[in-house]
């Protein structure tokens, strides 16, 4: 790769990352262009996801005591991150699996990219909110709570708009598809649990078999 090419790709990355701000304020237009005009990039999508995870951790560590009390004995950082990442990835896979059956135009890559762009308000709000939470009193806590819920509501609206544009759906079909995706996620969790319990029973069988043989020998 020539130095010039690298610079170009870096500029492209910055531009695509900046594009997430445009998507936030112009969801319908923004998410259409995201894939159809190739104005988004996977690298930027990954960055947004990593920033979201970072915001989750920083939220845990640095939010003021007035707004949040953390039971540190009960925190497992990997489980905590998985509690965001796992449902998110499940959403992407579930949505893709469902929409391919119902004339959705988006590929898994596009679903993932759009979903990442849709959750951009969360880190964008969360970082200033963490600072805010440290300079407010109990009486002013409502501001924090309202802004926090606002960012989540914004994410939800963006997510629905993103799915609509990616799959070229109408509003009604998008909402139906969203509900369907949630069910798909539940089914996947059920199958995963089934799978893990089967595997663990299978392993337990061989372990006990081995023990029995060793005992007899």
């Amino acid at each position: 790769m020539t130095p010039l090419k690298r610079k170009e790709s870096f500029e492209h990355y910055i531009a695509t990352l900046k594009y997430s701000l445009y998507c936030m304020t112009h969801p319908l237009d923004g998410f259409w262009d995201l894939t159809h005009e190739k104005r988004g990039s996977l690298a930027a999508a990954n960055t947004i996801l990593v920033l979201t995870l970072l915001a989750r951790i920083m939220n845990l560590q640095f939010t003021g005591i007035v707004c949040q009390q953390v039971y540190w004995e009960g925190i497992n950082i990997f489980l905590y991150l998985a509690s965001v990442l796992f449902p998110f990835l499940l959403w992407c896979v579930g949505n893709w699996a469902l929409t391919t059956l119902f004339d959705g135009k988006g590929t898994l890559k596009q679903v993932y990219m759009a979903s990442c762009y849709a959750i951009a308000p969360y880190p964008l709000f969360q970082f200033p909110l963490i600072i805010l939470s440290n300079v407010i009193t109990v009486e002013e806590r409502e501001f924090y709570l309202v802004l926090g819920s606002l960012s989540l509501a914004w994410c939800a609206v963006l997510m629905i708009a993103a799915m609509m544009e990616i799959h070229e759906y109408k509003v009604s079909k998008t909402i139906l598809c969203t509900i369907g995706t949630i069910f798909a996620m539940l089914i996947m969790i059920f199958i995963l649990l089934l799978f893990f319990s089967m595997i663990s029973q299978g392993i337990a069988y061989f372990v006990s078999l081995y023990r029995e043989i060793m005992f007899r020998m």
Binding site: I65, V66, Q69, T137, V138, E139
Partner: peptide
Amino acid sequence: YENYSKAFK
């Protein structure tokens, strides 16, 4: 946090 908030204010 309630007393904390009073002190912080």
